[in-house]
Design a protein around this nucleic acid. Structure first.
Lengths: 220, 220
DNA sequence: TACAAAAGTTAGCCTACTCTAACAAATAAT
DNA sequence: ATTATTTGTTAGAGTAGGCTAACTTTTGTA
C-alpha cells in the first residue's frame, strides 16, 4: 500500500503513543498535540486511515492500530533509526542533530536502499540514542525498560538509551557529561522533590525526577 | 526561500529544458509533457513561481528562469548527482537504478548533510552517468559537448558521459557492453540512415544515429 | 491575406490536507 | 443526579496541487 507522507506520520505517532509509550489512553487531542495539528484534522485523517484498515476505533472510542498499521509504523521506525545511525556514524552529525533529518529520510521509498544501508552500517542493533532498530521482519523486543528514576540509592547502573530525541533534552544530557554506556552511581535521592544526586566519571550532578524518567539504564 | 517538492521539480525541469538542453523554445506544453501534468497545471504553477521571482515571462511569451531560480535548480542538480554517486558507490545500485531514488533524495533539506555527503564521497567531479557535479557555489562548466554522432569515420573516442538517465537507455548502453571511459572506434557511418558501426573491447556493434546523439565523447 | 493548427490561458471542479467555530458525547465534580 | 469540563465530531472554508473543457492568442500555411 502506497501512503502519503502525512499518513505515515500519523501511523508513526499513533504507534509511539499507543504501543511504545502506552501509559495512558491515546485520543484525538493527544495525537493532535503530538502532530502539531488541530483535533479536527486528526479526526478527518483517522476516518481515512480507518477506511484503509490501518487504524481501528468506533466513534468516541479508543484508538488502535491494526496489525497492518503496526507493521507499517515499525518499518518507518526501522528506516528512521537506520538513517539516524548513518548520519551519526558517517555524516558527523551529533546525536541531537540526527532526528530532524531522519524525519525526512524515513519517507524515502526504496526497499533496496534500506537493505543496502543496513548492510553498509553493519546491521546495527541500536541507533545513536540507544533505541533498538527493528529488523526487516519488524521484530524488535525492547526488554530493558528500567529508568534511572527507579534505581535505588547507592546502586550503580549503565546508561542504555534515552527516551526523548528532542534537541533540548539531548544537548542537556551531553552537557552534564552523560552519553550511551556511561556508568552512573545514584548517590542520593532527595525526599522532597525526588531529584537525584548522581556520580559518574569523577563528577557529580543533580538531576530532576522527570529527567531521570527519560533515561533508560541497566543495573550493574 | 522554502519551496515545496513540486515547486522544486518545476524549477529543475525548467532548468533542464531552457539551459542544459536549450535547442528549441521551451513553452507551457513542453514543460507539461516533461513533468507529466497538464498545460493548465503548468500555467497555474508558473504564476506562482513568477510571483516568487523564480521564473520570468509575459503572457504568451517565452519562459526564463531568474538568477535565483537558476541557483536553486543548480543546487538541486548538485544534490541529485551527489546522491546518485552515493547510491552507485556505496549502496550497490546499478547506474540505471540511481535516478529514481535520487529524485526523492534531492528534496531532503539539510545543508550539513549535503556538504558532509560531498566530503564522504571525496568531492567527486562526476556522477555515475559522467555528468558534472556542480560545486557548493553552483559552478559547473560542462565544456565537453561532442556526441558520438559527430565523430568522423575512422576516429577513436572515449565515452565521457551519457545524456539520458532513463532505465531503458542505460540498460541498453550496458547491454551492448559500453560504460564510462569505454574507448570507441567509429568504423563506419551508414549513409542512408546515419547509423554507426562502432568497435570497442574486441566487439563490434551497430547503433542508431539517435543513440549516438545521447552519448558524449572526447576524441582521442 | 485568411484561416487552420498549435500553444497558452481561464474557469470550474477534484483530492489531500489544513484550520476555526459550533456542537455532541463522555467524564469528572459538586 | 445534575452540571461543568474535557474530549471528540461536524460544518464550512482555505491552500497547494491536479484535472477537463472552453476560449484566446500566436503561428504557420494555403
Amino acid at each position: 500500500m502506497k501512503l502519503t507522507k502525512n499518513e505515515e506520520d500519523y501511523l508513526k505517532t499513533l504507534f509511539h503513543l499507543t504501543i511504545e509509550n502506552a501509559q495512558e489512553k491515546t485520543g484525538t487531542n493527544k495525537l493532535a498535540e503530538h502532530l502539531s495539528v488541530s483535533p479536527a484534522s486528526v479526526n478527518a485523517m483517522l476516518k481515512k486511515l480507518k477506511v484503509k484498515e490501518l487504524v481501528d476505533y468506533k466513534k468516541y472510542g479508543k484508538l488502535q492500530l491494526t496489525e497492518q498499521g503496526k507493521d507499517i509504523a515499525i518499518q518507518l521506525l526501522r528506516k528512521h533509526r537506520l538513517w539516524e545511525t548513518f548520519l551519526y556514524q558517517h555524516m558527523n552529525f551529533k546525536w541531537e542533530e540526527v532526528h530532524e533529518v531522519a524525519e525526512q529520510l524515513e519517507h524515502i521509498q526504496s526497499e533496496k536502499l534500506i537493505e543496502e544501508l543496513d548492510k553498509f552500517l553493519g546491521y546495527p542493533q541500536r541507533d545513536p540514542h540507544g533505541a533498538i532498530i527493528p529488523n526487516t521482519k519488524g521484530e524488535y523486543l525492547d526488554v530493558n525498560k528500567m529508568t534511572l528514576a527507579e534505581v535505588q540509592e547507592g546502586k550503580k547502573c549503565r546508561l542504555i538509551s534515552v527516551k526523548d530525541e528532542s534537541r533540548v533534552f539531548l544537548k542537556f544530557v551531553s552537557k552534564i557529561g552523560l552519553s550511551l554506556n556511561s556508568e552512573i552511581l545514584v548517590k542520593e535521592v532527595q525526599e522532597f522533590d525526588s531529584s537525584l544526586i548522581i556520580a559518574f566519571a569523577e563528577k557529580e550532578e543533580t538531576v530532576t525526577h522527570k529527567f531521570a524518567t527519560h533515561v533508560f539504564v541497566e543495573e550493574l
